[in-house]
């Protein structure tokens, strides 16, 4: 009885994962600039990158180009 109840509980909890994905026409808020990973603010992003690379002594260590080898 307990096992059946536990299985039923698992089934119900799993069914909670059946949430329908966001439909393309429902992406009004998701399409906003502020919803980007970098916040969509170039100034803020550059500032944060400047602080981070200085603090981590990792200038040029981000992305491609200018790896610090002096060859480009």
């Amino acid at each position: 009885m307990t096992r059946a109840l536990a299985t039923l509980a698992i089934a119900i909890v799993l069914a909670g994962c059946a949430a329908q994905p966001v439909q393309p026409w429902e992406k009004r808020l998701l399409a906003q600039r502020a919803m980007r990973m970098d916040g969509g603010n170039a100034l803020e992003r550059d500032f944060a990158r400047q602080v981070e690379t200085s603090r981590e002594a990792a200038r040029g260590g981000e992305g491609v180009g200018g790896g610090g080898c002096g060859c480009n």
Binding site: T7, A11, A18
Partner: peptide
């Protein structure tokens, strides 16, 4: 019985 319930739950997880 538990297997059947689990399969049913899996059916619910996969959206049609």
């Amino acid at each position: 019985m538990p297997v059947r319930v689990l399969l049913l739950a899996l059916l619910l997880v996969v959206p049609p």
